[in-house]
């Protein structure tokens, strides 16, 4: 392998293909290298089954979120990035407010990017860990359907574990 002539190597270098992703929410377009975009299993499936045209429309994901997703894919498509670098870069991407994180986790889920789904879910979990229940309800759009008596009864189920609970 090492003795292979230089020109042969150059000849076999593949041409760089690009794909255009378009947010259907605000019509923003992003041109990305194919190998970057293929980290999304959803896009890979489209490309593999020849369903992908020149422009791939991405429904329900805003340009702002799509930019974050592409940033993540670019970082992880870089073969020279060390594990430490990636960790730092991931932390930077998810250093956002909770509503952006929820949009991001839905995007990662739709585009089927496992690593991004993982770091975003973990970040959301960390962010809600110490929040008052009313804030959690607002973030998740959940209504409190307990009566005060019922809620007290739920707390009483685990009374001793709640001792010293924030």
């Amino acid at each position: 392998m090492a003795s292979a002539p230089e020109n042969e190597k150059n000849a076999s270098a593949p041409e760089k293909k690009t794909l255009t992703l378009k947010s259907m929410i605000n019509n923003e377009e992003f041109v990305v290298d194919e190998h970057v975009a293929l980290q999304s299993v959803t896009i890979k499936n489209m490309v593999d089954s020849d369903c992908a045209g020149d422009v791939i429309p991405v429904p329900t994901i805003s340009g702002e979120i799509l930019a974050l997703v592409i940033e993540y894919c670019k970082n992880h498509a870089n073969p020279s990035a060390s594990e430490d670098d990636l960790k730092k870069a991931d932390a930077g991407i998810v250093a956002k407010d909770i509503y952006t994180l929820i949009d991001l986790v839905l995007a990662a889920n739709f585009l089927d990017i496992k690593g991004l789904l993982e770091v975003t879910s973990q970040k959301i979990a960390d962010s809600i860990k110490d929040l008052p229940h009313q804030d959690v309800r607002e973030i998740f759009g959940v209504e409190n359907d307990y009566t005060p008596e019922e809620e007290a009864a739920v707390r009483a189920e685990h009374d001793w574990a709640f001792e010293g609970f924030p």
Partner: peptide, 26 residues
């Protein structure tokens, strides 16, 4: 979808006990 389940399952038991108070669904 099952994202909330994935998010919540990353929390420690004590936090989850508290989150039982969020709603009957939870």
């Amino acid at each position: 979808n099952d994202i909330p389940m994935d998010v919540l399952s990353r929390l420690p038991v004590k936090t989850l006990l508290g989150l039982k108070c969020v709603s009957k669904d939870w």
